[in-house]
């Protein structure tokens, strides 16, 4: 395996791990549900995407072809993350989860 490929894979892994961790920190320390929603939908999705990309690079330079499965998983995650965020926000508004103090505007209820 070439030197450059190793650096790329290591960098992608570290970026992915970092974003996954940041998403989880956001989930743990942001003040209310609606702000917590932002961490996982963006940071975690990108983190796992980067790890997946590292896997694609690793297997395509080492032996067997480009990994289609990884790309399918990544596309699937990127398509489903907003959908789950949306449906969870709807559920939270339906239950009446209170937004944090200082939130401007109102969640509406249909």
């Amino acid at each position: 395996m070439s030197e450059i490929a190793e650096y790329v894979i290591a960098a992608l892994l570290l970026i992915g791990g970092g974003f996954t961790l940041i998403g989880a920190i956001g989930l743990a320390r942001l003040p209310d549900f609606f702000t917590r929603l932002h961490g996982p939908t963006k940071a975690t999705t990108v983190g796992v995407g980067a790890i997946m990309l590292a896997s694609v690079v690793y297997f395509s330079v080492s032996h067997d072809g480009i990994g289609i499965s990884e790309i399918l998983i990544t596309v699937f995650l990127f398509m489903t993350a907003p959908v789950s965020a949306n449906i969870l926000a709807k559920a939270a508004m339906h239950i009446g989860v209170k937004p944090m103090d200082g939130t401007r505007g109102n969640p509406w209820e249909q």
């Binding site: 992915g16 996954t20 549900f33 996982p40 975690t44 983190g47 997946m52 896997s55 995650l77 969870l88």
Partner: peptide, 23 residues
């Protein structure tokens, strides 16, 4: 503290599980 928070945590947890499996 609310049920949606727990569901969101589970949602993030399964995405992390995928990352672990890839690793």
């Amino acid at each position: 503290p609310d049920a949606p928070d727990r569901v969101l945590a589970l949602d993030t947890l399964y995405i992390n599980a995928i990352a672990l499996i890839i690793l």
